[in-house]
Design a binder for these strands. Structure first.
Lengths: 340, 340
DNA sequence: CTGAAAGCGCTTACAG
DNA sequence: CTGAAAGCGCTTACAG
């Protein structure tokens, strides 16, 4: 009981059990060779004293700390919190523990977050928001931590990116609107500049171009419910009112639906078809029944943790894992049958 | 560059700067005395090498690790994720970092979580889900970590509980329904047995008893949207159909509103008044406009972190901090004017 | 299988 | 203000 915070250490246990400190260490190291009798004595003493291996000290001698940093902005958002939850669970299964670091998405705050991760010698940092430049990524590498970039576009040597087929989903969204008989499709976008968002939008626009159909397009604020509300208000106030709209985010789509219904007295999908992206829980609620693309949240988490466990560290490779967004058909898009 | 994971250490910096390791340490210790010139040399060398103080090692010598464990189940729920987000932010402001540990709320998993926190020598554990028994709490204390119990009822010596005036809110909910002219008030509860939930319900029931009004009461499942849907379905199928209902959770309230509207064709609040609790973002959405009690999420986070910073550790005291839930009046309860 | 010893990267009295 | 030294709590060859 002689350390800085008065906890119980391996030495206390060793004394109580009448063995060496090494024997205590071995007892708590899977696979180490300890005689059953020794082991039993150690375990008994440890239990009696309330001993727990100090992972901080262990992290100092071993190559791994067991810590993984999750770098994220706006954690309270439905999609974000689902992803963090899945990541935390998967990490736990793999014997790691998640440390969460908030950012505001600015370069400075992402840098601060990463430096924090380095200081704690986390085994890896999973970036959900913002984007470190290559110099920062190199700094991480040099300090022995691996980088997982989720839904980020630019490649960084020594890291893995996990991406969806956003562009393709955007195209499919357009096709669905066409098949639903929408004559005036619209796109509601935000100023949040992440590439996964941009890809969804580009895909939609490209498909429209190919089909020779003009699209009504409004852009505003963040990817929030409130933005959806306001965007719909603008779109639906136009003389050439759209009859179908694709939102790169479910939160925006919920806002669009509510504005259409409650502020314009429109019916969804009869008067306006709406397609979202993410498949947050609210998308399945009776008030929305939103047709949307589901992000494979658990698949993303599993792929991240798997890569960390199995991919050999390679400071020159920039890995890429592509996952698919699955269409979830609910009631917010007209079917040809229900059609106007 | 000689450690287990090949990172850069204070020794490397000391060599490069031509000073002692102690000088490097002092440069990164606020308030330590270092000559400006020495400091400058160290900083330059550190920058060039990409050095970061190893917090794991620092945590070994100092009394604090800077780590705080957040122990939580169902992180992806709106209220939970808001609280975790606020806690993380406040902790960060205080120079700490949050480690999140998932539980399934069972005693075994809470114990596992706490032992994990002890192993990492976190400065504190904030318990949002489940409840450690006194023996476990003692184990934490003995290992130098403080306990913050949020919305938990039983007191634990050596910890602080942060509680709301749940009982009172329950009473107020009943009064509101009465004033709205509801003749057949109902209570929709879940089987989730936390005391804050129970207190809200008890308060409601007690007020009804005092007023001599019988209350229709159904109980089911978890505190989820789905439970709300099902509970409303049962309640609204009864011959003595309620005209007002209090839900101890906004998620349940959203389910109740959706069932009333979309499955029974009822109007809210004209046919059914609904009151929730939490004030999750969705409560403010146009589809719900839910009248509810707001949990002071940031206040809870601030109080937690403040206590950690300022309350002197006392292994015999069981502190209690009471916060108020603020009524947020929106449109889901009839006003006497709109009344039937 | 076991213990003594060295080492991981820090910090902190202690002399100077 | 500065450095040598001891110590925090572990793990891991190294002998035995």
């Amino acid at each position: 009981m002689a350390n800085a915070r008065g906890g119980v250490s391996a030495r206390d246990v060793a004394e109580a059990a009448g063995v060496s400190r090494a024997a205590v260490s071995r007892t708590f190291t899977p696979g180490a060779s300890v005689a059953p009798a020794t082991r039993a004595k150690v375990l008994a003493a440890a239990e009696a004293l309330g001993y727990h291996v100090n992972y901080l000290a262990r992290g100092l001698t071993r190559a791994e700390s067991g810590l993984v940093a999750l770098i994220v902005a706006e954690l309270a958002t439905p999609f974000r919190s689902q992803l963090v939850s899945a990541l935390t669970a998967r990490l736990q299964e793999a014997g790691k523990v998640a440390m969460i670091i908030n950012t505001d998405r600015s370069d400075a705050s992402v840098e601060r977050a990463l430096r924090q991760a380095i200081a704690y010698r986390t085994d890896a940092a999973v970036v959900l928001s913002g984007m470190p430049d290559q110099a920062l990524a190199d700094l991480c590498l040099r300090n022995g931590l691996r980088l997982v970039l989720i839904n980020r576009d630019e490649e960084r040597v020594g890291s893995v990116r996990i991406r969806l087929d956003d562009r393709d989903a955007g195209r499919r969204a357009f096709e669905m609107l066409r098949q639903a008989g929408c004559a005036r499709p619209a796109l509601a976008t935000s100023f949040a500049g992440t590439t996964s968002l941009a890809d969804r939008e580009q895909g939609f626009l490209a498909a429209a171009r190919d089909a020779g159909v003009p699209v009504l397009h409004e852009t505003l604020g963040a990817t929030s419910y409130e933005t959806g509300l306001e965007l719909a208000t603008r779109l639906l106030s136009r003389p050439d009112r759209p009859d179908g709209v694709f939102c790169p985010t479910d939160l925006m789509a919920c806002g669009v639906i509510d504005a259409a219904r409650h502020r314009f007295g429109l019916r969804v999908p009869e008067d306006l078809s709406v397609i979202g992206f993410d498949d947050i829980p609210q998308a399945g609620w009776d008030a929305y029944r939103l047709t949307t693309f589901a992000q494979p949240v658990d698949g993303i988490a599993a792929a991240s943790v798997d890569w960390l466990r199995t991919a050999p560290p390679d400071p020159f490779a920039a890995d890429l894992i592509r996952l698919s967004a699955r269409l979830v058909w609910r009631g917010s898009v007209r079917t040809p049958r229900t059609g106007a």
